[in-house]
Design a protein around this nucleic acid. Structure first.
Lengths: 351, 351
DNA sequence: GTGAAAGCGCTAACAC
DNA sequence: GTGTTAGCGCTTTCAC
């Protein structure tokens, strides 16, 4: 019962009483064919429920319109939004979209990119911040050159290029500006002791956010020692653990700036578990404005990063620029979304 | 610069000083080749950064190991988890996974399935509840037969088969049992006036949940009129709108059973906006236990549906059963997760 | 206007 | 052990 033979173009031709060339012509629709023959062929194809073999087509046609996205995981709200943007923009242009997940494993990333090369993907999009070590730089350089040699495009999405000379397109957020803005928001509310939760040394996105955080502190005349960054990495669990740990000692902060909204979710839970209230006892801000951030307790003040637009831009750029005029990075703006997780620090409210 | 010629097997053969057949043999690894030649070929392939053309390979090899998942959208936490399960299980077996989204549009669904037939996907997985109208039944029957005729498998995931005779595998949750369980939980807490928010007449998943809800009510000796289902459909926005509407009139309920967690999120917000507290003034339960349900305000009591396992099961089943011994549905168990959104109704607490 | 035929890059018989 | 060759299903010159 398995593997019955697929209907081929030859059978359609026979049934319609024409040659395979004619069938190909009407199906491709890029060649004038008399309405009568055309109808006959179409009828035969319909009757046989014929579907073209995409592989044969791609083989002769030199590849197929396909873009591939590589993410850590689809269950992260942020990545899911980026994927949705890529998928939508690809579909809108009649391109196929393939999403692959790595779980953060470099080997899986390499395997997937290799697979995409075999499949003839014409655009490969790498999404999200990463820690830039030598192995990474080497990997990306290889992807970029290999893809370029095959006439395909590499797009770095949400991360800078490790080397401006690489044939790669890049679309990013201005993480530093976003972080500077939320930190300033906290400072304006009167906070002076703000901890940054979720540092990840070497990670492009987090380093930039930390830089923005430090810049805001400095701009408000605070000394460098005022910065307190906890390098616990990302994820709800990490945020929860790190916050709980922090809450064990003397409380030397009045606000926390979480590296992203998932970290914030974990931190909020830990704070509640400790019997403290947000924002009365401690203020919290996140980053990314994931769809459910407004349902947190309390609704989270955070930085909106247009994730879906990031994905759309990536494919738009790649399709618009088939010959790879790399060079300038495209940067997308972000802005603060004020909700209920920030208030003046306790001391300020009881002068 | 675009579309440079890809390195082919012929070039590797030349460089290694052997025939293409030999190269093919060492690369496929399914044929004994002397270590010396083998090494020479491998070296040549590496030097040229050769990647096989998957299309040529699939063309001669009769298709390629690929499973396709079809979802409404990846940004829904529930669907994302299912997709992750499918992806993981497929990858674990060395299969490619392609995810397509429809946004709920039947046309896009048909286009995507058609595309998957062209691509030679050997497994196509349709995910999630649907409203079963005639058009739908016809569509699915067509997919099932067409896929079967090509030796591929159709898997209905999270929805029953519209016709037991169809050559399709099915994996589902026992929605009725899950709904009966949470409703009973509410009843045990003392609630008698419970509204079901998020009905969607004709939708397989919601109808089953409503049935479980009614069954629980009946089991507790309540008359059929005790049931109150609001057919607002799914999604956070729908839940918010419907709840706000409900709150405008005389409050004739003490608890709400949301059709899924996103509806619950919207309902919680509407309740808070109305100045009411959960669970003191009104209790709320959801369905699915999405990852962030515990971060809602208050943490949501809900029904855990093992979404990722649903996805994994779907591919496991399809791979285990290549010849389509359809017939019996596979059903996955669910269970309640008790958190903070339920308490006895106000009247019970002030006897 | 339509058909015959030459490949696209690869695998698998079939020779030697 | 390794090379030669015939296709896989399709598109696309090039004839007629």
């Amino acid at each position: 019962m398995a593997d019955k033979a697929r209907v081929t173009i030859r059978e359609v031709a026979e049934r319609a009483g024409v040659s395979v060339a004619t069938v190909s012509r009407v199906l491709s629709g890029n060649y004038p064919v008399p309405p009568a023959t055309r109808a006959r062929v179409l009828r035969a194809a319909r009757a046989l429920d014929y579907v073209a073999n995409a592989h044969a087509r791609a083989l002769v046609g030199g590849g197929r319109k396909m873009v591939a996205v590589v993410l850590r995981q689809v269950t992260s709200p942020f990545y899911a939004q980026v994927a949705e943007g890529v998928e939508a923009e690809a579909a809108a242009n009649g391109w196929l979209c393939l999403v692959g997940t790595t779980g953060g494993d470099p080997q899986r990333e390499m395997d997937f990119v290799q697979l995409m090369r075999e499949e003839g993907a014409r655009v490969v999009i790498l999404v999200g911040g990463v820690v830039e070590d030598d192995a990474y730089r080497e990997r990306v350089a290889h992807y970029a050159h290999a893809l370029d040699a095959a006439g395909a495009r590499l797009v770095l999405c949400g991360r800078p290029s490790p080397d401006p000379e690489l044939p790669a397109l890049v679309v990013v957020f201005d993480n530093e500006a976003g972080a500077l803005a939320v930190t300033s928001h906290l400072l304006s509310a009167g906070h002076r002791r703000i901890v940054f939760l979720g540092g990840l040394p070497g990670n492009t996105a987090l380093d930039a956010r930390v830089a923005g955080y430090r810049a805001a502190l400095a701009a408000h005349g605070l000394p460098p020692e005022a910065a307190h960054v906890v390098d616990c990495g990302l994820g709800r669990a990490a945020g929860h653990r790190a916050m709980a740990e922090l809450l064990k000692g003397e409380r030397e902060f009045t606000a926390v700036f979480a590296g992203d909204d998932m970290v914030a979710a974990g931190a909020l839970r830990a704070i509640a578990d400790a019997g403290l209230r947000v924002p009365d006892d401690v203020s919290v801000v996140g980053y990314n404005d994931i769809p459910l951030a407004e349902d947190f307790n309390p609704p989270l003040t955070t930085v909106r990063t247009p994730a879906e637009e990031l994905g759309r831009s990536a494919v738009r750029l790649a399709l618009r620029d088939p010959d790879g005029t790399a060079g300038t990075d495209h940067v997308l703006g972000t802005h603060i979304v004020v909700r209920g997780s920030v208030s003046p620090p306790p001391s300020e409210r009881t002068p």
